[in-house]
């Protein structure tokens, strides 16, 4: 992990190249986080790749309900040579949950962006194959959102499928 100073240096370099890209930095429990403007995510990841963070370890969605903007995306980058990790984070509103897809540049994000779309309803523009991945294709709603209730939904079996039961009520 870059220390607090190292993180500020990286953020400053990014700010010098594009004044609007970096919104904030956060250093918590030895983990460095850069919070970026959603539209600049592809550019930021590319700049960090040039710095050696060439492995996208994980991509995950978060719902910050009741805070606004509610939805968040996290990109865990890893530098395999310096053994260093950095997290890039962005936040979008539920009304327009659009994030540029990083799949064309980082093929590993394919399944993980589909999962975030499936679970949180974040729409990745430019994703080659944005479909639900874990939930059924005709499922309605985004189950990992915080205001989605746990339990209480009917389970679709073959016997009630013919009776017109649906996944959601």
């Amino acid at each position: 992990m870059p220390d607090a100073t190292g993180l500020e240096l990286i953020a400053q370099d990014l700010r010098d190249a594009d004044a609007e890209a970096v919104l904030e930095t956060l250093h918590f429990r030895e983990q460095a986080t850069i919070i970026v403007e959603p539209t600049k995510i592809g550019w930021v990841l590319e700049r960090l790749r040039e710095r050696g963070y060439s492995f996208l370890a994980s991509v995950h969605g978060v719902d910050y309900y009741p805070e606004e903007p509610r939805l968040g995306m996290h990109y865990e980058l890893l530098d395999m040579e310096a053994v260093d990790r950095i997290r890039v984070k962005l936040r979008v509103h539920t009304e327009s949950p659009e994030v540029p897809s990083v799949t064309p540049e980082w093929p590993t994000a394919d399944h993980q962006e589909r999962e975030a779309y499936d679970m949180f309803g974040i729409v990745f523009t430019g994703h080659p194959d944005l479909r639900r991945i874990l939930m059924p294709e005709d499922y309605e709603g985004y189950p990992q959102r915080r205001d989605f209730p746990v339990g209480g939904e009917p389970v679709l079996f073959t016997y009630n499928e013919s009776q017109g039961a649906d996944y959601t009520q």
């Binding site: 994980s58 995950h60 719902d63 865990e76 394919d110 399944h111 993980q112």
Partner: peptide
Amino acid sequence: GCFVRSDGSAKPARVHMRDPSFVNLQ
């Protein structure tokens, strides 16, 4: 990798597993 977000309560606000099988399948 396990990602945990806490909002200060006694329950995790988000638990996410970066499961290697899920990524390797690609």
